[in-house]
Design a binder for these strands. Sequence first.
RNA 1: GCCCUCAUCGUCUAUCGGUUAGGACAGGAGAUUCUCAAUCUUCAAAGCGGGGUUCGAUUCCCCGUGGGGGCACCA
Length: 461
Amino acid sequence: MSQVRVRFAPSPTGFFHIGSARTALFNWLYARHTGGTFILRIEDTDKERNSEAFLNVIYESLNWLGLNWDEGPKVGGSGGGNHGPYRQSERGAIYKAYVDRLMAAGRAYEKDGAIWFKLLGERYEAFDDHRKKTVTKVRIPPVAIEDQIRGRVERLEDEDFVIVRSDGNPVFHLVNVVDDIAMEVTHIIRGEDHLSNTSKHVLLFEGFGAKPPAFAHIPLILKQNGPGKMSKRDQGALVEEYQRRGYLPEALVNFLCLLGWNPGDDREKMAIADIIRLFDLPGVNQSNARFDDKKLAHMNMVCLLEQPAERFVGLARDYLARQDTPVAQAALATEAPFFRDVMLLSQPKIKGLEELPAYTGYFFTEDFPIDAKVRDKVMAKGDPKARLGELAEMLATADFSSDTAIEEAIKALAAKNGLGFGDYQAIARLAASGTNVGPSITGMFRVLGRERVLARFGRFQ
RNA sequence: GCCCUCAUCGUCUAUCGGUUAGGACAGGAGAUUCUCAAUCUUCAAAGCGGGGUUCGAUUCCCCGUGGGGGCACCA
């Protein structure tokens, strides 16, 4: 029975946080690394905040990240295992049975309408400074765990605590432990914010006569600016935002892996298969990590550059299809080969798919804007109108079949007039695209085609 | 206030007692190029403080300081 079973247990709040994503990721990696089972369990005991739409946020984010679960909701008919149901809202009877066992064993009692877990030891009264009242304490030895990441951690738990509220609802600590026992979870990989809860959990495991699983508390992700851990309200905290902005899931996954873990050498960009092979719990860092969107953006660019042509064109199409702007509509309405050419011309130049509309807009309409500031700057130097005329005349009969053919033609023209390529470049770009940034003008001309280029030159004032 | 935990460039990190303390992102400079990116070269940038242990500590121990988390009939 050395089969690893790990679980990711989010509660459906309507948001899928970057920190949750990493917790899910580390659990998933460990399961895949060990050939174990990755369980998705929904902690939806808070009925007020629970809804089907909120559940979908979780499913969609996990799916997008590629973190498939072996047991849990939406897996086959029975949840992919015989440990279901996997939503806590459907496990009430199980919790009740476990609490009854505790009561029968004298490890739980009722007080003020709630059910309390009973610590076994000498009792005494003490004044609690924080709560400003006298409480009953219990003398027991501190609870010690051997954390897979932090080593030995000891903490004293010296008060009975509530496990079922007076309204009949079981509390987090109880359901969490009961489910981990019932689902035969072997490793609990969770955020460090739960480290202080672990003593309660261990006591509960023992109260149920169960051997506590291994614990691994991973460091937290701190917000980019300001103090504290990242929370849902922080800029860039939601997974769906990256999905919406056209980030590649493998880029986010790779980035998240590096926040608190590394392969032990200088490798950063890695295939997921390699990460799975190299990942292990003792390799996880102990200190919190600050989120860095610049590094994420860089990782995304690296991934984008690596994409095979057809995949990139597909990604670009998918991204634009979600935009619902005139530019995106126009782009999608063009012939597939033209669309493809434009995207492949842009692939090595952009840092993210979200730059696409602004970067390629002028390819898809004749009604593109002319940047006034750029125009002023370009027109102020030399005699751009004359250069444009010479270029138009030459291009009317030039070979448009390849970038190099166009390049040679322009260079020949420049040489003939005792000028350089640069004397033609700026005005040609401005007339053809309305701006001063973009792919090489030779590529731009080839893709636009002679007719369009000359027409744009002709219209340029 | 109490408890737990962490500590290397601005940021993410490597180093498992002996290194010119390495890499990446961000930043500076340069090269290249038809612009902008990318790319290449290059510069700047770190062991929180104080005690120990040791021939020798970034590395091990203690104290302090600082950061983070937790102290509910929230999850």
